[in-house]
Every structure is written in structure tokens, then in C-alpha cells.
């Protein structure tokens, strides 16, 4: 099967400090990958670098989405090519309504693909359908983007946007943080509904908890900017039980 996302020896940093020290990751259609790791291991840097966050500098390596070089594209073009990042901290944008924000996003993608803008009626219909995926209140659509949203609403709003944009690869960065158990169920349920055999999901998380709802095919452990362990779902359970110390020891001993 064709690789959807292929990351090879990716190195990146911030403010002159190297954080990712050679990441290798291959994601195929229909797969769910979980990336776990202790604080500061580079999980959010990896998602930021793939999405084109200008705070990070790429130092080497490559990343392709269905054969297209991601690192040479602007963040908006990465999105158009089918990459989606669910933010750990969704940004509040006072004065820009969710409707206008989403319409601009959808129509920019359609323009990129050489399609006509979506009609107002179709757009509102799609909004209605996709809101249902995460049980997002209609009232939120007329409010400013994320402004005054609760933590749970912000995360549901991320998955709603994912539903609207229908990405090929979605990266969920700590989507479970700040969620109570009901919100977690709704968010995870939304992600599962959007899963097809054509797309793929990368779940970045600290805890095994989310993986009870979103079942991964592969679990990777990120430590000191490298993927140091890859296994099946059982690896997440092992981490939950034993913590990260055994991984740290294993890696640190190798380095000596």
C-alpha cells in the first residue's frame, strides 16, 4: 500500500536548540498511530513542524504527504494537501465568526483544488451535518472563533473543523488534555466517525486514557527527539503500568 505520510530523519529546533533529532515515521491509509512520550520529548514540536508552525526551524530530513514534499509548502498549502492539526491550545480569534472562518477555509481549499466556491446553502447544510459529529451547539457557529468557549468546546470545535476539511492525515495534539470523561467520549467518538480506509490519524498523548476510545494500530514512544520504541496497542498499556522510566533508562544506557 502507498505511504500516506512519510517522515525521514527529520531534525528541527527552536531558538537554536535542536529538539527533533531524526524522526522516522511511516503512516499508511486506514491506520491510527499514537505518539506517546514524557514531557519535553518533542511531541508538540513534531506536530508543529509538520503543520508549518513558523516558530520552528527545520534542520534536516524530509516529510511527504502522498508524495508531496510538505516542508517546502506554506501552512495553508499543507492544509490544502490534506494535513490537519488539531491544536493543543486552540487560538481565540475575537471578531471573526466561526461561520466566516470556516467558509474562508473551505473556499480557499476549493480554490486550491480548482473548484468553484461552495454555495451558501450547501455550506450551511455541511456545517449542520458536521456539527452533529461532535454534538457542537449551533450557537457556537455564530460566535467568534474559540472566544469564550470552554476547554471541551474548544476541542470539540477542533474535531468539527477536521470534519469540515476532511483531511487525509489528522494530527491530534493532546486533544484529551483538559477534557472531562463525557467530552473525551464525544471527541473520540467524532474522530472514530471520521475514520475511513483512505485517511489516517496520529494521536499525540501523554496518557493511555484516550487510547481506550481511539484504538491505535501502532504506538510510538518519543524520547529526546527520537522515536525510541514502536509497538502495538499493548505498548501503551505497558507504559501506563510502568511509566516512562524504563524507556529513559534503556535509551540513556545505550548512549553511554
Amino acid at each position: 500500500m502507498e505511504d500516506l505520510l512519510k517522515v525521514e530523519n527529520l531534525r528541527a529546533g527552536i531558538d537554536g536548540k535542536e529538539i527533533l533529532r531524526g524522526i522516522n515515521l511511516t503512516v499508511r491509509p486506514g491506520e491510527v498511530h499514537a505518539i506517546m512520550g514524557p514531557n519535553g520529548s518533542g511531541k508538540s514540536t513534531l506536530s508543529g513542524v509538520l503543520a508549518g508552525d513558523p516558530r520552528f526551524t527545520v534542520l534536516g530530513g524530509s516529510a511527504t504527504l502522498a508524495g508531496v514534499d510538505l516542508l517546502g509548502l506554506s501552512p495553508e498549502d499543507r492544509s490544502h494537501e490534506g494535513l490537519f492539526l488539531s491544536f493543543q491550545y486552540p487560538v481565540e480569534i475575537p471578531g471573526v465568526t466561526m461561520v466566516n472562518f470556516m467558509r474562508a477555509a473551505i473556499n480557499a481549499k476549493r480554490k486550491y483544488l480548482g473548484l468553484e466556491p461552495m454555495s451558501a446553502a450547501d455550506f450551511l447544510k455541511t456545517m449542520r451535518q458536521k456539527r452533529a459529529v461532535v454534538e457542537l451547539d449551533n450557537k457556537l457557529a455564530s460566535r467568534s472563533v474559540n472566544e469564550g468557549f470552554s476547554g471541551g468546546e474548544k476541542k470539540r470545535n477542533e474535531i468539527f473543523q477536521m470534519a469540515m476539511l476532511e483531511p487525509r492525515v489528522a494530527i491530534l495534539d493532546e486533544t484529551d488534555s483538559g477534557l472531562d470523561i463525557d467530552a473525551l467520549r464525544i471527541v473520540a467518538g467524532g474522530v472514530n466517525k471520521l475514520k475511513t480506509d483512505q485517511n489516517a490519524t496520529i494521536v499525540i498523548t501523554h496518557y493511555q486514557r484516550l487510547l481506550d476510545y481511539i484504538k491505535p494500530d501502532f504506538v510510538h514512544i518519543l524520547y529526546k527527539g527520537r522515536i525510541v520504541h514502536t509497538g502495538g496497542p499493548e505498548l501503551a498499556l505497558e507504559l501506563e503500568e510502568k511509566g516512562y522510566d524504563w524507556i529513559k533508562q534503556e535509551v540513556d544506557n545505550e548512549q553511554i
Binding site: 503543520a51 508549518g52 508552525d53 513558523p54 506554506s74 501552512p75 495553508e76 499543507r78 492544509s79 490544502h80 492539526l85 491544536f87 486552540p90 487560538v91 481565540e92 480569534i93 472562518f101 474562508a104 477555509a105 473551505i106 480557499a108 481549499k109 486550491y112 473543523q161 476539511l165
Partner: peptide, 15 residues
Amino acid sequence: DERALFYMQARGIPR
């Protein structure tokens, strides 16, 4: 706000 700009770009809205 650069964070807001990046958030919008990440959703496909040109800068």
C-alpha cells in the same frame, strides 16, 4: 497576532 495567523493558515486560509 502571529498565533492567530498560524491557526488560520493551518486551516487553509492564505496568510
